[in-house]
Simulated scan of single mutants.
Amino acid sequence: MTAVGIDALAFFTPNTYVDLTDLAQARGDDPAKYTIGIGQDQMAVAPASQDLISMAANAAAQLPAGSLDDRLGLVIVGSESGVDESKAAAITVVRLLGLSPWLRAYDIKEACYGATAGLLAARDYVAAHPDRTALVIASDIARYGLAASGEVTQGAGAVAMLVSAAPRLLIVHDDAVAYTADLPDFFRPTGLTVPVVDGHYSTQAYLDFVTRITARHQEQYGDVLTDYTALLFHLPFTKMGKKALAALTADDRLEDRRQAASVLARRVGNIYTGSLYLSLLSLLCHDKSMRPGDRLGLFSYGSGAVGEFFSGTLAADFSDRIDAAGVTAMLAARHRLTVPEYEAMFNAQLPLGDAAATVPLGGDSARFTVGGRRDHARWYRDNTQHEGD
């Protein structure tokens, strides 16, 4: 059987961030509460000129040249940051990227799990149609409110994954084990701009899911944790990954790899559906001991709740299918906001509703940006063309 998996991976985050030492001091907290207790150093802040659609298009546009050719038959966006209750963000992404219309495009929403559902659906699609490819994008803006208990676990970004037969980055195995339970740990009723969260309950639910699902995976497939070179986790904050690994094993080797897989999340924050795949990118960027044939375990969790564990094997050309230097340069080029600037940016979002509005470009240097809203719908700029559409 032909192997199927991730052929290439790309990442985008807005060009503004707040340093969490600055934020801790402004909130009257010890910085160690954020940098050690939560495990975060910086937090990406999305201006009004970025939303899930513009970020998704910006991430996909950074995939290797020629990735999105006529073989593409499926586009899936996983997100819980939707800006329309009916129309899929994936449809607008298809247009912004200039893709062929002869494909299927839709969104998946289930908290932070949506992109994993998309990846595994894309894997099944390509397995059935090995001459086709699929594009899966995780794109989210995590917002909890100024001075809210979850403020330090906000963030913004998107991860784009090209799925193909004979993948050159990660072979995704057909061994996923999923578990679903109706839990009230996190939800955002329609009309609210920030979620309702029971943080302690959600953390305990996450840990219960990771131990329960991993044990079930071992029962079904006969694996043990020593089979894995690294274990990757959904990271709403990086300390969560440390807790998850500790609930499974005290293996120092896996802990070292967990730290490498947390480097980017420490600088970007929580990107909901993309957090697990940002962890994958971080591992490959920051642990140069990874080798083709290494087996990875991936745990995905979405509040509400759905969890899933599956495995993958690094392909021969994996290091060529990410742009580690580009990620480093993007993060280095960001503008550090003062806390008052961050607070003003947080509040200066496009309001709910369908009233006409224009969003200034400001200092946003991304290719795709939100232009505003007209005729009830958002419109977007492609800044390589100097016009909105």
Rank of each mutant, 00 (worst) to 15 (best):
S275L: 08
V94F: 06
A332Q: 09
E80I: 04
A261D: 03
D223G: 07
A10P: 01
F11S: 06
T35H: 05
E219L: 14
G307E: 03
L254P: 03
A117Y: 07
V194N: 06
D287E: 13
L146Q: 12
D41P: 00
R367T: 06
N270A: 10
L72C: 11
S279E: 09
L103C: 03
H129E: 13
W102C: 03
L248D: 05
A329S: 13
D354M: 12
G118F: 05
L276I: 09
G191W: 06
D51E: 13
T203I: 14
V77F: 01
P64Y: 09
R253M: 05
P130R: 13
L280M: 14
Q25H: 14
V163L: 12
G145L: 10
L99K: 07
A3Y: 03
S319E: 15
G145A: 13
G66H: 07
D51A: 12
A89D: 05
A134W: 04
A111P: 00
L9M: 13
R321Y: 02
R132L: 08
G312V: 04
A142L: 09
G66Y: 07
L231Y: 01
D175M: 11
D19Y: 05
Q349T: 00
T153C: 11
V224G: 14
T13A: 14
V18H: 05
A147L: 01
D317C: 11
D182P: 00
L183N: 04
F368Y: 14
L264M: 12
V210I: 14
T249G: 01
Y144S: 04
S86Q: 14
A56M: 01
K243L: 15
P195R: 08
A148S: 15
G98F: 07
T2C: 10
A115Y: 04
F318M: 07
L314P: 02
A215E: 13
A56G: 11
V268W: 07
G73C: 06
L298K: 04
L192S: 11
F368V: 00
L245Q: 02
H386G: 12
L63P: 10
A247C: 08
L135C: 05
T338E: 10
R95Q: 15
T338V: 09
F11W: 10
D7F: 01
V177E: 11
A128E: 13
K87L: 13
Q259Y: 09
A147H: 10
V93W: 07
T338Q: 10
S149D: 14
T211D: 08
A265W: 04
A105C: 12
Y221W: 15
L264F: 11
P64G: 08
F299D: 06
T21F: 00
A48Y: 02
T238Y: 09
Q385K: 13
K242R: 15
G73W: 07
A44E: 02
L276S: 07
A56N: 06
R321K: 15
K288I: 07
R378S: 02
V172I: 15
G145H: 13
G222L: 10
H286F: 13
G145I: 11
D227L: 05
G363L: 09
I141W: 08
Y34T: 00
Y125P: 02
Q204V: 12
P47C: 12
A105G: 03
I271V: 15
V126E: 09
T273H: 05
L169Y: 01
D389G: 10
T249C: 02
L331W: 01
S319Y: 03
L169P: 00
